[in-house]
Design a protein around this nucleic acid. Structure first.
Length: 470
DNA sequence: AGCCTTTGACCAGCG
DNA sequence: TCGCTGGTCAAAGGC
């Protein structure tokens, strides 16, 4: 059972790519207004034709929650967490789409809940090129293997696909197959696919998961290396804003809107090297470099979203020239303590008495300046886990990054308390999956976000002035 | 000791 | 050419 809570949802998610085979409807169940673009109803009616979902009457919107119904087989369609969303509006006006490769293949069949005969996986391995009038795409582009079961359920949780599991081809008008079973684009249009790949691209994931898939004799994965899956963001980009290109003409940029939780899932390690007040923005922009490897050119810009609470605009530039750091799935924006397990222990102890707590946006992601409340079970657990990690003879490689961390600082003026949810993932469970082992690339340690229930997170809300989970 | 954040100064592109 | 602005550097200090 120890493994269960370490459900590698990311793997599960990444190993599935599905599309409906029948008429379907996607509609947003969360009625929130998230952006100034949103003036029309928040319902997206889609139809599918031959495995393609087309959005009609689309209005740019965030998608916090979905319900996806498929004729007589409704599929509750929920995000993994409350803040899971895709800002599809960002992706829509992609009239010159760069190659985007669907990379997800359903591979994991859990002994738990399954959804049968509902979805057909998409395993397209070729890039999606700019459609033109009467353009046809060879049928092979859409040749799909068939599976009958899609399983995401672990312990009965999240037994349904999430938004990330469904590639969505956004097009207007619909793509239709011709007599030769080729996909025909009736007129120039923009098509974009939204899959988990985008999130992974955002995090610049190396093909770790893909390797797993290949080991399972799945189809090879092709990830576009040429354009990094760039999705032009013509909605959010100010036309006069060209300063991006000054020094980075050749760097690859991906902008995405991520919730705090998503940001924390970033497996890469970053070091903040600057912060700047951006004109017209009420929030400073923070600049991060990849700190995992010297000379890595990957950079990340983080700025709090104007439009959506708890959301940050994260811009990735450049590419990592190294593998994703192992055993670092804590995924804070900044700090990564890679050296010793002592650090975990010392940090945990030091912060017990610390009152030096800042309350900036950036600090939300910091692993420093944290204060534990000794009276809090989670804090105790954190210490316990940390000490166990530090003292265990066979866990020498364990560090704080092995566990997911969520921590929220409180303003100085208050009774500073920072709760570290890191402790919600017992170290014993990390071992069950595999501690760091440089000799085993297949030991992937990904925390189960569901292990941290929203109720728990909400309990921390007041500690952060209600900013994180209003 | 090492790595982090902070922050003012500087650099460079653009209008 | 100059001022504005975004991006980066690097010293200082913290953990």
């Amino acid at each position: 059972m120890a493994n269960v809570d370490w459900d590698l949802f990311a793997i599960v998610r990444s190993c599935k790519a599905t599309s409906l085979t029948r008429s379907s409807t996607i509609f947003e169940t969360s009625p929130h207004i998230h952006s100034t673009f949103e003036t029309s109803p928040h319902t997206l009616t889609t139809t599918t034709t031959n495995k393609i979902i087309s959005l009609q009457n689309y209005t740019p919107s965030y998608f916090d929650d979905f319900t996806l119904s498929c004729e007589n087989s409704p599929i509750p369609f929920s995000p993994l967490k409350s803040n899971d969303f895709l800002q599809i509006g960002t992706f829509i006006p992609n009239f010159n789409p760069t190659p985007i490769t669907p990379v997800r293949i359903p591979t994991i069949t859990s002994p738990n809940t399954t959804i049968s005969d509902v979805v057909t996986p998409v395993t397209t391995t070729t890039s999606f090129m700019t459609p033109t009038l009467n353009t046809t795409i060879p049928n092979s582009t859409f040749a799909l293997p068939t599976i009958t079961n899609i399983s995401t359920g672990i312990n009965g949780i999240n037994q349904y696909p999430t938004v990330f599991d469904f590639p969505i081809f956004v097009g207007q008008p619909q793509i239709k197959p011709n007599n030769n079973n080729q996909m025909v684009f009736p007129k120039p249009a923009a098509y974009i696919e939204i899959t988990t790949a985008h999130f992974d691209l955002a995090y610049n994931h190396p093909p770790v998961l893909h390797e797993l898939q290949r080991e399972r004799n799945q189809l090879p994965i092709q990830v576009s290396k040429t354009n990094f899956g760039i999705i032009p963001n013509t909605l959010s980009q100010h036309p006069k804003r060209k300063s991006w290109k000054r020094k980075n003409n050749n760097t690859k940029i991906l902008e995405c809107h991520l919730s705090v939780e998503k940001i924390k899932e970033d497996p890469w390690t970053w070091r903040k090297y600057g912060e700047k007040i951006i004109k017209g923005s009420s929030h400073p922009r923070s600049y991060y470099k990849c700190s995992s490897f010297n000379d890595c050119s990957a950079r990340k810009l983080v700025e709090k979203s104007k439009n959506k609470e708890n959301t940050y605009v994260v811009t990735y530039k450049g590419q990592h020239n190294h593998k994703e750091p192992k055993c670092n799935h804590k995924s804070a924006i900044g700090t990564f303590r890679n050296k010793s397990s002592k650090r975990v222990l010392s940090t945990a102890k030091v912060v017990e008495s610390s009152s030096n707590v800042r309350n900036t946006d950036a600090q939300i992601f910091s692993t420093q300046s944290k204060v534990l409340n000794p009276e809090n079970d989670l804090s105790k657990h954190h210490l316990l886990v940390s000490e166990e990690a530090a003292s265990s003879s066979n866990v020498g490689n364990f560090n704080s990054s092995d566990a997911m961390m969520l921590q929220f600082d409180e303003p100085k003026s208050g009774n500073a308390q920072v709760f570290t949810c890191e402790s919600t993932i017992p170290y014993s469970q990390t071992k069950s999956i595999g501690v760091c082992d440089d000799d085993d690339d297949n030991d992937i340690l990904i925390p189960n976000m569901r292990a941290m229930s929203e109720d728990i997170l909400l309990e921390f809300n007041h500690l952060n002035g209600g900013k994180l989970f209003p």
